[in-house]
Design a protein around this nucleic acid. Sequence first.
DNA 1: CGTTTTTTGTGTTTTACAGCACAAAGTTAC
DNA 2: GTAACTTTGTGCTGTAAAACACAAAAAACG
Lengths: 229, 229
Amino acid sequence: MIKKEDVLAKLPDLDGALSPEERELILSKMQVRTYRKNETIYQEGDIPSHLLCLVTGKVKIYKEGVGGRAQIVRVADAVEYFGYRAAFADEIYVTAAAAFETSVIATIPIGLVRQLAMRNSQLAWFFVRRLAWALGKSDARTVNLTQKHIRGRLAESILFLKESYGVEDDGRTLCVCPSREDMANLSNMTTSNAIRTLSAFVQEGLIALDGRKIKILDEDALQKISRMG
Amino acid sequence: MIKKEDVLAKLPDLDGALSPEERELILSKMQVRTYRKNETIYQEGDIPSHLLCLVTGKVKIYKEGVGGRAQIVRVADAVEYFGYRAAFADEIYVTAAAAFETSVIATIPIGLVRQLAMRNSQLAWFFVRRLAWALGKSDARTVNLTQKHIRGRLAESILFLKESYGVEDDGRTLCVCPSREDMANLSNMTTSNAIRTLSAFVQEGLIALDGRKIKILDEDALQKISRMG
DNA sequence: CGTTTTTTGTGTTTTACAGCACAAAGTTAC
DNA sequence: GTAACTTTGTGCTGTAAAACACAAAAAACG
C-alpha cells in the first residue's frame, strides 16, 4: 500500500511555492492511484477535475485523429505534473492519457490548485513556465512531424525518448520500451513503416533492437538524419 | 503619429490585473512601432526582450522548416498580446513573426512584465490561461496537419482564418487576405497544391475567390471536409 | 497445455502529393 | 511606358509512404 505521506515527500515542490499550510491542505485532499500498463488515465472529452502528478512510471499523452490513428503529443516522466492544461483553459480534455508502464499517480482537486494559484503568484508562475515550455515543444513538434521524411521523424522520436526518459546504466539503452505501434504513433507513420524503418536503422548500425529495447549505437548519425528530414 | 496614451487605452486590461500604479509604470516603459506588410517582427534565434501587443493589424507566427518551407503555427489579431512564450520559458525565439498587413505594435520590456507577474498572481494567471489555451490549439493543430489529407487541411485553414480574424459585413468574406503561399504555409502543402485545391473548392461551389479575397459559400461542407480529413 | 489474440515482420500495390517546368497575370521599379 | 520581378495558375512525372495482405513469433488466456 502506498502512503500519501510518502508520495507528498516525492512531489516536486512547485518551485518552493507552497507554504506549510498550503502543503498540508493539498496533502489532505490528495488521492493516490495505480494504473496498469496501457490503462487509460483520462480520455478526450472528459471533464478535467484533478491536477495529476506522476509519482512513478511513464505516461503518454495522445490525440485520436482521423481513422482512429493516434498521435502522441507529449509524454510525462516521474516525478512530473500533468493533466492541468485543459482545466486551466476552461476546456474539456482534447487529449487522452495512458500509462506506458505501471504508474502511480497522485491527484489533487484542480479547483483547489486554481484557488491557490490565483492567490499565490509563485505557484501561478510555476505553471506559466511549464506551459510556455510545453508550447514551444509543441510548435517544434508540429513542424517536425509535418515536414520531415519518415526516417527523420523516426530518428527524432528515438532521440525524443532518450531526452524524455533517459537511458540505462550503459548510457545507450532507452529506459522506455514502447511497442512498434507506440513508435509509429510518436512518429506519425503506420506501424508497418515504423517496423521497416527501425529494421533499416539496425542494418545501418545506428541502433540495436532486443524486443522492445532500443539501444542507440550512433547518436550523431541519428541527429543528422533527424535534422536533414 | 500614434500617441502612447491612445494605445494604452486600447490595451486589453490583462483581466483587470493591474493596479493604477502598475499601469502607469507600464505606460512609462512602453514603446510603439508600426510594421509594414510582410515585415519581420522577430526571428527564430532572437532573444526575446519585450512583451508585444498587437494594437492594430494582423500577425502570423511561423517556423522555418526543412528546405526553407515555413509553417504558420499561430496568428494574432488586434488587440492581443504575443511574443512572450519564449521569454517565459527562458528560451530564445523558436518561431518568427511577421505582419500579414500593416500593424501597430506596442512593446513592454519583458523583464518588467515578469517582475510584475511574479508578485501579481492575477497577472500570472492571465498568462496561464492564455498559454493553456494556445497549447491545446497547438496540439490539435499537430494532429490536423499530420493526419488530414490536403483538402481537409485547406478546408481547416479557411475555417481557422474565419475563426481567427472574422468576416466582413456580408458574413462570409474573410477579413484577412493571405497570399496563396500563406495559405500553403498554413495548410502544410506546396503553393501549387494550395492554388489547385482552392480552385477545386471554387468549382465545387464551396468558396468564391476574388484575388486574395476568400468568400465562404458552404461552411457546412467545409466543416465536413475538414473533419473527414 | 494447446488455443486464441496480439504484436511483429515482410512483400506488393496503389496513390496522394511533392517537384519541376513553364505560361499568364499582376506588381514594382526605373 | 516598358522592363524586371513576383505571384498565380496548370500540366506532367516521380516517388514516398499509405494501404493491403499475409506469415511468423510472442503473449494472453482458459
